[in-house]
Design a protein around this nucleic acid. Structure first.
Length: 471
DNA sequence: TGTTAATTAAACAGCG
DNA sequence: CCGCTGTTTAATTAAC
């Protein structure tokens, strides 16, 4: 299954149409603005990018001019992501179709439509009688992610859902119970420790478990109704062939490989993308690193290396030695942080009391060997001030600053792991270092397999692993 | 047909 | 006591 590019027509007109459509779906959100910017900054250069037709097309950041760290939080990475490519402008008339469909639904029966039909673009503000095509966990996820501090009391979760999905204003009672039920049972959600969180009176604050955040992203991405999928359906007359024809025993591939792991689509996450765009978030840094790593991995594996060399978000050539060295350091730091996180439990959340419920989400990031999973090695830690003191990513950043020769951030704390790592690095013999580098190289390739697998591309080794793990 | 995830309903305890 | 919050169990449905 390889991503295909089937659009030769004007991107500009196509984007304009989509901007209108999506802006109507989520009026008032930053999505509209972002999409407007996308239209304005359209460039033909994208067409020449060797990666734009690969699974990492959405990971591309090569055109981003990083002036300072604040740039990382802008929407420029979205604008460069070819999000609106591959979409055929044919018969895209969401409003008319959806309205027609909605009318038909309510002509048939004067009752609440159970679920929104998958073939109709969903507009939460318009289709107030259609049950949102998102699961409760997705709704909660969006609500929490859209909050200023990425944590909400259940009451605010209700409010957010009510505001963004008017369906629930007249929905049968019980949905709040379902929300609470989900919060309790779903491992993705955790209560913020009351001692560390602000006192909000009754109840606790709820946040997303960083370990399960990718799961929620995946869950949202997999829903056959989400806006991006609708666009995909319009672009591809045989969408089911991309999703349903999954070999038995295999994990379902992403509906479309165009969104790499952990990247946020403004189509898919109108609110989330807004949230991420507005926040001075470490996560963007992480995503950027993921993207950089992904690019390099693809390059190392000989994918998408035709034409002009891909560049990192820093404008650095992915194939350059300095970049590879930097990548290796990053990988080592990631591993250190990962191990550290496993041992120190820095996230200020309470433990889930029940582990034996039916909401044991598949940890899709753990395909094959856990150690080789890139997702596992990234910490999607809290960006909130309350958490920043113990954020692994602050260590990450500071370490990378050190690598780049900058002064470490003042919040940096030197961890035992770091000391151990640094000292051992100094004492390392050249032979050992070479071995280690080879090992890192090996892990990079393994990571590439994992990434590519997550992105929907089967590599030889990942295929072997997959078959092995499912046999 | 069995399994799994998601939804829904309900009961119950704790807390303010 | 009441209402909200959080937990848990169970039944049902749909998808795979």
């Amino acid at each position: 299954m390889a991503p295909t590019r089937n659009s030769d027509e004007s991107d500009a007109s196509m984007r304009e149409r989509l901007v209108n459509s999506l802006s109507q779906s989520f009026p008032g959100s930053a999505l509209s603005k972002a999409l407007s910017c996308m239209s304005a900054e359209d460039s033909d250069d994208d067409m020449k990018d060797p990666l734009s037709s690969s699974c990492f097309a959405e990971l591309r950041l090569d055109k981003v001019d990083i002036e300072d760290d604040d740039e990382l939080t802008s929407l420029s990475w979205l604008q460069d992501n070819d999000l609106l490519k591959n979409i055929k402008p044919s018969d895209v008339d969401d409003d008319d179709d959806s309205q027609k469909e909605n009318d038909n639904i309510h002509r048939d029966g004067n009752h609440f439509n159970p679920t929104h039909p998958p073939h109709v673009p969903y507009n939460p503000q318009k289709h107030i009688h259609s049950k949102p095509p998102y699961s409760f966990s997705c709704l909660i996820f969006m609500a929490v992610e859209d909050s200023p501090h990425k944590k909400l009391p259940v009451k605010d979760i209700y409010s957010w859902i009510l505001n963004h999905f008017p369906y629930f204003q007249n929905a049968p009672t019980g949905w709040k119970n379902s929300v609470r039920h989900n919060l309790s049972l779903n491992k993705c959600f955790k209560k913020v420790d009351k001692d560390r969180g602000q006192s909000i009176g009754k109840g606790s604050l709820w946040c997303i478990d960083p370990d399960y955040r990718p799961n929620l992203l995946q869950a949202l991405r997999k829903t056959p109704y989400h806006p991006y999928h609708q666009l995909q359906m319009l672009a591809n007359p045989q969408p089911t062939q991309q999703y349903h024809y999954v070999p038995n025993g295999m994990r379902p591939m992403p509906l479309t490989p165009r969104f790499g792991p952990n990247t946020i689509s403004p189509h898919l996450f109108p609110f989330l993308s807004k949230r991420l765009a507005q926040s001075n978030s470490d996560n963007n840094d992480i995503d950027r690193d993921i993207q950089d790593v992904a690019h390099t991995l693809v390059s190392l594996k000989g994918l998408g290396s035709r034409g002009s060399p891909a560049r990192s978000s820093d404008g650095e050539d992915y194939a350059s030695n300095s970049y590879r060295m930097r990548l290796k350091r990053k990988q080592m730091q990631l591993k250190t942080d990962f191990v550290k996180r496993r041992h120190t439990e820095p996230i200020v959340v309470t433990e889930v009391p029940s582990e034996d419920h039916t909401y044991s989400l598949t940890n899709f990031g753990n395909i094959g060997s856990p150690a080789s999973s890139i997702d596992e090695e990234y910490d999607f830690g809290e960006e909130d001030d309350n958490f920043s003191e113990c954020s692994d990513m602050s260590d990450w950043d500071s370490d990378m600053d050190e690598v780049d020769g900058d002064i470490p951030d003042k919040h940096t704390k030197i961890t035992p792991h770091k000391n151990i790592q640094n000292s051992s690095m100094v004492k390392m013999t050249s032979r050992k270092r070479k071995e280690m580098e080879e090992e890192e190289q090996k892990k990079i390739v393994e990571g590439a397999d994992a990434l590519l697998n997550l992105a929907g591309i089967m590599t030889n080794s990942s295929s072997l692993k997959s078959n092995r793990s499912h046999s």
